[in-house]
Amino acid sequence: MAKEIKILIVDDDPDYVEGIQSTLINAGYAVDAAYNPKAGFEALESKKYDLLLLDIMMGRGAEGVMMARKINKDPVLREIPVLIITGIREQMAFLFPGQPVHPRFLPTDELLEKPVDPDLLLEKVSHLLELAEEKKTNE
C-alpha cells in the first residue's frame, strides 16, 4: 500500500467496534473510532479520512441518520465514501416508510447488516475506495 488509508468508525457500541476494527487493521487500514456523532464530527475535522463506517441506531434513536444528513450538507465531507452498518435492515422499511430497503442518505453510501462477514466487509470497503478514487481521477 503506497499510502496509508484512513478509516473512521462511528458506532456507539465499543465491543462491536473492537471486532470490526481488528478485521480492518489486519487488512492494513488505519482505523480510528468515535463512539458518538459529536466525537465523529470532531474526528472528521481533525483529520482527512478516506472512508467512514457509520452506525445508524446510536444514542437515543437514529442519530446515525442525522449524522449522515449533516455530512451530506457539507461540501467537503460529502465526498467521503460512507459504509452504513446497521442492525436494523429489517426495520428500514418500517422506520422510513415508502423508501427502498436501502434508503440512500448519502449519494455515495453502501449498506451492510450487522454482524458483517469479514470478507464481505473488506470487499465493500475496497469497492467504495476504488469508486472514490475513480471519481477523483475523473474530476
Binding site: D15, E18, G19, K114, V116
Partner: peptide, 11 residues
C-alpha cells in the same frame, strides 16, 4: 449484543 459477539468472533 449478538452482533458484537459475532463480529469479535469473526475477528
Amino acid at each position: 449484543p449478538l452482533g458484537a459477539v459475532q463480529q469479535n468472533l469473526y475477528a
